[in-house]
Every structure is written in structure tokens, then in C-alpha cells.
């Protein structure tokens, strides 16, 4: 992995986490949809990252968010699930021979692929997150609605950010 990618990802980690903690923590629609944009960092990690490193990064990112949200372990578990879904999806949909793109961004992979990738990862992350946060099944319907709406909200902002920094690689 070259050093430029490492620096970009470190900077992205700090910016997205600050954005999440400072601004998005106090943002919600009628307590139904809370955005968790920091997952974009995990979505955009390079293809060449080894699996163990992916899990470690997800674990540490989750723990950091947990410390600031006072929800010890909830985000950690959700991030690990996201990475699992990410690895599965990439192994199914991207062939190993032509890894010419370094990162799974919208500009590199196209809108259709990215939309499916992001929505699958975000939904699995949010459903684990909200069910672990509620930690009881009596509010099942409410939690389900909440995780769905939050996923849509997060997906919307993720796509927005991706379109703002959209640059198709010159071939």
C-alpha cells in the first residue's frame, strides 16, 4: 500500500469522525432517523487492505465512536458487521484480476455498483446498531423503522458526499 493512500485515509478518518461527533450527534428527524456518516470511511478503505487489518480498523473506529457516544461496544459490533458485508460483497462482485482501481469510490466503480454496495453495508450496520442500542425486543417495530429510515438518511448523505468529491479517473 503506498503512503499516499495511507495519508488520505488517516485524514478522512479524522474529518469524518469530527463531523460525526460535532455535528451529526445532535441531529435527527423526529428521533426517527439519525445519520452515521463515519461509516463512509470504512466503505472507502482500499481494496488491497488485508482482512485482518480491515477488522482491526473497524474495531478501533467503532470503539472511538463508542467512547464519544457513551455506547460501549454497540458501534464496535456494528462496524465489524459492516466490514464482513463489505468483504463478502467485494469478493462476489469484483474479480481479483483487474484490481486497477485502488479504492471503491463512486467515481471509480460507477453509480450502480456503489449504490448497491453502500446500501447493503449501511443497512447491515444500522440494523445491528439500533438493535444493540435498544437491547430489547419489545420495541421491535419501532427499532426496525428507525434503522430503515436512518439507513436511507445515511445513504443519502454518503451519496451526496461522493458526488461532491466525484472524479472519474482518466483512462
Amino acid at each position: 500500500m503506498n503512503s499516499k493512500l495511507v495519508i488520505i485515509n488517516v485524514v478522512r478518518w479524522f474529518i469524518l469522525l469530527l463531523f460525526q461527533i460535532l455535528l451529526l450527534r445532535s441531529m435527527s428527524f423526529y428521533n426517527l432517523a439519525n445519520p452515521f456518516i463515519y461509516v463512509l470511511f470504512l466503505l472507502l478503505l482500499p481494496f488491497s487492505t488485508p482482512n485482518l487489518l480491515l477488522y482491526l480498523i473497524a474495531f478501533i473506529t467503532g470503539l472511538t465512536i463508542d467512547a464519544f457516544y457513551d455506547t460501549y461496544g454497540v458501534h464496535t459490533a456494528a462496524c465489524v458487521v459492516l466490514v464482513f458485508v463489505r468483504i463478502l460483497f467485494i469478493s462476489v462482485s469484483v474479480s481479483r484480476d483487474n484490481f486497477d482501481e485502488p479504492e471503491p469510490t463512486l467515481g471509480n466503480m460507477g453509480f450502480k455498483w456503489f449504490l448497491l454496495y453502500a446500501s447493503l453495508c449501511i443497512f447491515s450496520h444500522h440494523i445491528i446498531l439500533f438493535f444493540l442500542e435498544t437491547f430489547r425486543l419489545t420495541e421491535f417495530n419501532y427499532t426496525l423503522v428507525r434503522s430503515l429510515l436512518s439507513s436511507i438518511f445515511t445513504l443519502f448523505i454518503v451519496l451526496l458526499i461522493e458526488f461532491i468529491f466525484y472524479n472519474r479517473k482518466a483512462r
Partner: peptide
Amino acid sequence: FFIIFFTLGIVLTIKN
């Protein structure tokens, strides 16, 4: 790896 890390996360949640 998923099993290992996810179990860790769940254990932390339950502890909390």
C-alpha cells in the same frame, strides 16, 4: 475474523 471481532463487540455491549 468476523466471529472473533463480533463476539468481542457483543461482549463489550453486554458488559456495558
